Simulated scan of single mutants.
Amino acid sequence: MVNFNGDLVHSDQITLTKDNRAFKYGDGLFETVKVAQNSVVFWEDHYFRLMASMRMLRMNIPMSFTLEFLEEEILKTVKVQDAATSYRVRLSVYRRDGGLYTPATNEIDYLLEVSPIKILEKGSYSIDLYKDFYNYSGLLSTVKTNNRMLNTLASIFAHENDLNNAILLNENKGVVEATNGNIFIVKNQVIKTPALTEGCIKGVTRGKIIEIISKNEDFTIEETSISPFEIQKADEVFITNAITGVQTVTNYRKKVFATAIGEKLSNSLRILQVLKK
């Protein structure tokens, strides 16, 4: 079952017209959230990012789109799924049909899709650079729009080369993010992550990890530009997103990384998640 504009329907009952703007122009955005133990993880942060993104894309935000309303809609949709420990929920918002590049309306439709999260066994996790196309820096790149072609091509590259993930670069050949999350590198007592001006998504988990590191006197966090050379020289590398939390990286080309700091931050994130309930 999916939730289309508040109505629970079977997924095969959802029909997109030939004028669907998300399909024709990528005129939409989405939030991916985790639901665990009937709680939407870090929902307030996701909600305010969604509102900011909709404003940036000049979408009309319905009066009903309150934090409480959307949380109830998410939990309502989760409730009718097969029982699982935790769920991945994708909330898609897109402008209604009509118009060419100029839309006929700024009113929106929304769709909620739910799937159980599979627990993956720990093991090696390898990455490399994707250099065929660039993720251009700028404010629009920080928004999770439906245009994920670069992420798709980079994911195909990773699959074809027996990698777990690929790293996107910007037009200055600086590190931006992974295909499915933000990236952090650790060198001595300094932990770096690309600044938003580099073109990375303003990840909710990214923000939580920055918050955790900022309160730890043993480390310094820097939001800055990162060269691919710094990955090679790093002690540790890890990737963050809303579903996995912290994914430690073990291999980059011939380099093998430690994972202790990433694992500690993963534990701290889980504790923060419980405290935020």
Rank of each mutant, 00 (worst) to 15 (best):
T197F: 14
I183R: 00
V204H: 10
E236N: 01
Q232P: 05
G98W: 04
G98L: 02
I108T: 09
K173F: 09
E160W: 08
V9N: 11
A158P: 13
S126H: 09
L168C: 07
N20C: 01
A258K: 15
N180K: 06
P194C: 02
P194T: 07
L196W: 10
A158L: 02
N251T: 15
L168A: 08
D128M: 00
T197H: 14
N151L: 07
K79F: 09
K276R: 10
D82G: 07
N216C: 07
N216Q: 11
S141R: 05
A260V: 09
N216W: 07
N164P: 00
T250K: 06
A22F: 08
I61F: 00
T66C: 10
D132W: 12
V80M: 11
S53D: 04
L150C: 06
L120G: 12
I261N: 04
G138E: 15
N188C: 09
A84K: 06
N180I: 11
G245C: 05
R96Y: 05
S266H: 12
F30P: 00
N161Q: 09
Q13N: 15
I212P: 04
E177H: 06
V41T: 13
S214E: 04
L269M: 03
F48P: 11
S137P: 12
F69R: 04
L129C: 05
E44S: 12
R253W: 09
V143G: 03
V33T: 13
F65K: 08
I117F: 01
D132T: 14
V190H: 01
I127Q: 03
D7R: 15
V274A: 14
F4M: 08
T224N: 00
S266L: 07
F30G: 04
T220D: 08
G203E: 07
V204S: 13
N251Y: 13
F48K: 11
D45Q: 05
S155F: 03
K79T: 12
I74P: 01
I74T: 00
E217C: 09
A154M: 02
I74H: 00
